[in-house]
Design a protein around this nucleic acid. Structure first.
Lengths: 365, 365
DNA sequence: TTGTAGGCGTTATCAT
DNA sequence: ATGATAACGCCTACAA
């Protein structure tokens, strides 16, 4: 009631003041001179119920006059649906430092909203309790779930959900082991291979790689596999001193690059695990007196909106997270509607976008 | 039921298959051999109700065995609270192209979750209907609202909400006209003034400005005011040919810079409305054969995570959206709890972070 | 064509 | 200390 409220009261929902009363369907019924049933029928457009056009109009008018909006809780209590979905991501922090998740969220949000779904944005490890997001489904707060980059530890929970038939779409994880989980993915390994080959074809032999996160992440290990594939295919020996791991942010990319440089100044190219890290790495290179692309060629990953506007413009892999988010959402909406498409997994190829950060080749290695 | 479902069924919530049944409090009561009332008491830790320790244990055990989670809809139907808040932003697209909103969302999300609130991310103009987000409060889907960069057209709705006592916090808008709206803000005008002064002090006289959005945005006009303040204070005449407006993205900044250059090549400095636009502008400058900072000095706005890693590192205003999001959320949680702090408006100063994009001065204008 | 009544899963007010 | 019982607001057979 006042600023002197004890702070302990803040988180107790029972302490909240009675909110402004809202209009209920009974009031609409009364004003229109009909029963609640009739109100429900016309407002929900129930067909074949034989509501006279005149009654219809009267109800609609009454509802409009009163500014009636159905109570969502009541509605979902009886219908079992909430018209809400959740996008679960590994960690809230990623939203802050990298551009991948925001773009994916934008796609999910856009698509879900056009289908009438609200979206809840859920970090997976907020208070540290794993599987916490399951409460959302257990408490029936959501009709469906999109999960990005599942850590291995959550696999079993998701498999369980999917087995129950709960609408679930997973993005960017390899869950083949657990059949029955719908997934949207990108051929990461092949893209990483292409990125590395691009560097190799330009004449580079000392090609470094910075993982965008710890190697436990599926996307990180896949990139590493692709990197190795390319090296092997070109007969270039893998040098462990040339690979290291960062942690999403530009700062971590900067640090990783410095570590790499301290270890081995012979590198002439870098395949960065994501563009943000590439930015950090390029800053470290510049600081070390190395020019991009003249001294070191760099290819990134993701094609974030700023990649094309970097100095030099960044050659990178275009992962289109927005589109992935849209695709996942469209699939989710169908699952919620009860469809069960035959195709469980969708994997798309992602193109290499060549700009200027790799220069035109080095033939004097 | 199958992939052959007509697509028209997709968006009809009534078509959804019965979901997996969840356990209810009755089942817990039966297993524990008590009434639903008792279950409710122990699960909600209602004090002074005199539940024996033994009964308590039994109920808790039963609940755990059954994996009982209270139904959120039922709970909010009776309690009136949803433990959900919404963050409303002007347009979904902004999430995609600029780094400000994601960081703010991260702050809101972090803080709200620690207080037990889920957060709904709502674009304001999704399907084009203005004031759409009001349905969230009318249908009682949320307990509180944070609104970023309100367009003027929505002012009246928000004032109405606030007058009703609905928990509402506004960020980045000047709503003084409507007393009673809690707001978190930053001294944009003064920051813009400082940014421009920085350039002026370095000896620049032909200082351009690119608004980050159309001038209807509060933040855009405030920056423009600050820019003019500085010019006036230094006795530099405002040249309309040196100011233009972009639209959040780097691409729009690039386009704006090209337009500026086409109009007037005498400019030697740029104050960009946000960092993303600064990136685009710098790319355009480089493409035009102009070097930063040697030929043109640039100062940005926001201090996005990549600003420090740009080439050259960007001098900018640090707006700390994450922290703003946290602050707004903390305030909102208090409002939901019924507190009404005396302080309606909070305005903080935002510092200029000097890096290398302005060089060390130009004394031969 | 419209009204009655029961139920969705909780919480909360009573008695006991 | 516990258990009926009545809301909460809506949907939907079924009856009229």
């Amino acid at each position: 009631m006042s600023a002197t409220c004890p702070l302990s009261a803040v988180d107790n929902p029972l302490n909240r003041p009675k909110t402004t009363p809202r209009v209920t369907s009974s009031q609409v019924a009364k004003l229109a001179g009909v029963s609640r049933t009739t109100v429900s029928f016309v407002l929900n457009d129930v067909p074949q119920m034989g509501i006279s056009e005149e009654t219809r109009e009267r109800v609609l008018l009454a509802a409009r006059q009163l500014g009636y909006v159905p109570n969502a809780a009541a509605r979902s209590l009886v219908s079992g649906a909430t018209r809400t979905v959740a996008l679960v991501v590994p960690h809230n922090e990623h939203l802050r430092v990298d551009a991948f998740i925001p773009r994916m969220l934008a796609g999910v949000n856009e698509t879900c909203h056009t289908h009438g779904y609200k979206v809840l944005f859920e970090p997976m490890v907020e208070a540290g309790r794993p599987g916490d997001f399951l409460d959302l489904v257990d408490s029936r707060r959501i009709d469906g779930l999109i999960v990005l980059n599942v850590p291995r530890s959550e696999d079993v929970h998701l498999a369980h959900l999917a087995a129950e038939g709960f609408p679930l779409v997973v993005i960017g994880s390899n869950l083949d082991a657990h059949a029955g989980i719908y997934s949207i993915d990108v051929d990461t390994r092949d893209a990483a291979r292409a990125a590395t080959h691009h560097l190799l074809a330009l004449g580079h032999r000392r090609v470094a790689h910075i993982g965008f996160a710890p190697n436990e992440y599926h996307g990180v290990s896949e990139r590493l596999f692709g990197y190795r594939d390319a090296l092997r295919e070109r007969g270039v020996e893998l040098d462990a001193a040339l690979v290291t791991f960062a942690n999403f942010s530009a700062q971590s990319g900067y640090d990783a690059m410095r570590a790499l440089l301290a270890r081995d100044r012979s590198l002439t190219a870098l395949f960065a695990g994501n563009d943000t890290i590439a930015f950090g790495a390029i800053a470290a290179l510049r600081e070390a007196g190395l020019r991009v692309p003249d001294d070191v060629a760099v290819v990134g990953y993701d094609d974030i909106p700023l990649a094309a506007y970097a100095s030099p413009p960044l050659t990178t892999i275009r992962t289109s997270p927005y589109e992935q988010g849209c695709e996942a959402s469209n699939l989710l909406v169908r699952l919620i509607a009860g469809e069960r498409p035959a195709e469980l997994h969708s994997t798309s190829a992602v193109p290499l976008i060549v700009r200027e950060s790799c220069g035109t080749g080095r033939f004097a290695a």
